[in-house]
Design a protein around this nucleic acid. Structure first.
Lengths: 129, 129
DNA sequence: ATATCTGTTGCAGTAATGGTATAACAGTTA
DNA sequence: TAACTGTTATACCATTACTGCAACAGATAT
């Protein structure tokens, strides 16, 4: 499994789980229709509680990343993740704003900022590794 | 005062305070050397506890945005905010990553993402309003 | 039918966090 | 001396993150 948690982080475990699975989808390591481990097995796998995994799955389901067939298990959304709507773009804007504000204060140029973003985008293109 | 808090938000009050002050500095509404209200008066002003304001100020001080002369009050760093170091850029990278990952999943192109960032940058250029 | 897998739900307990309240201390300034 | 500043301490409450144990409901395989 590609899950790698940092129990020392102040980022909640369930949130880390959500991010890592989204990363997996973004870099095409997790393909539409692909199955994910059950809440119990994944919990046992990484040594955390069933509820913590369930919370992550619930959020991913809520956001359309995965589907949960009651007894068949968890599956990456076969139709692909729902495309960005206004709500998402709004949220994105809201999240980016403070990062950009602080960057400006710290003399990070727009050019440099955009370059950093591009660099990150790159890391999601070369699917292998 | 330009402080505008949302008590319904799940973003902590002290964090909102931090962000708004950073925004103020970023858009040059708060200039280097400019004084900020005391913890008590600001707390009374927006109807929150002294400790909450203090927590925000402490974080801003920690990050070099403001200076606190023991009895003279709080002042926007006259030497300007410390420029971005590796630690900051690292943090920035870490914060941007999940936003970009989800954007990719939701079919937001790199171009569109960068454009959004540019749009946000623009809002910090026209200092007036 | 029975056993076993699945997600889901409930309740309880611990620890940490965010916020409030009251109070006091230590310097500075008027 | 009085009034202001930031700072610190203690206590309290609500919420959140996480854990643990347990049970329920539906599907599947034997």
């Amino acid at each position: 499994m590609f899950i790698n948690l940092d129990f020392e982080s102040n980022e909640p475990i369930y949130q880390q789980l959500v991010h890592q699975i989204i990363e997996g989808i973004a870099r095409k390591e997790l393909l539409p229709g692909e199955g994910l481990p059950s809440v119990r097995s994944l919990a046992a796998d990484i040594g955390i509680n069933l509820h913590t995994v369930n919370k992550a799955y619930q959020q991913l389901k809520q956001d359309g990343f995965i589907l949960i067939h009651r007894q068949k298990g968890v599956v990456v959304n076969p139709d692909g993740v729902p495309k960005a709507d206004d709500s998402f773009k709004n949220q994105l804007n809201k999240n980016l704003r403070p990062l950009i504000a602080e960057s400006i204060c710290r003399d990070v140029s727009e050019e440099e900022f955009l370059k950093l973003c591009s660099t990150i985008f790159e890391t999601y293109k070369g699917g292998s590794t």
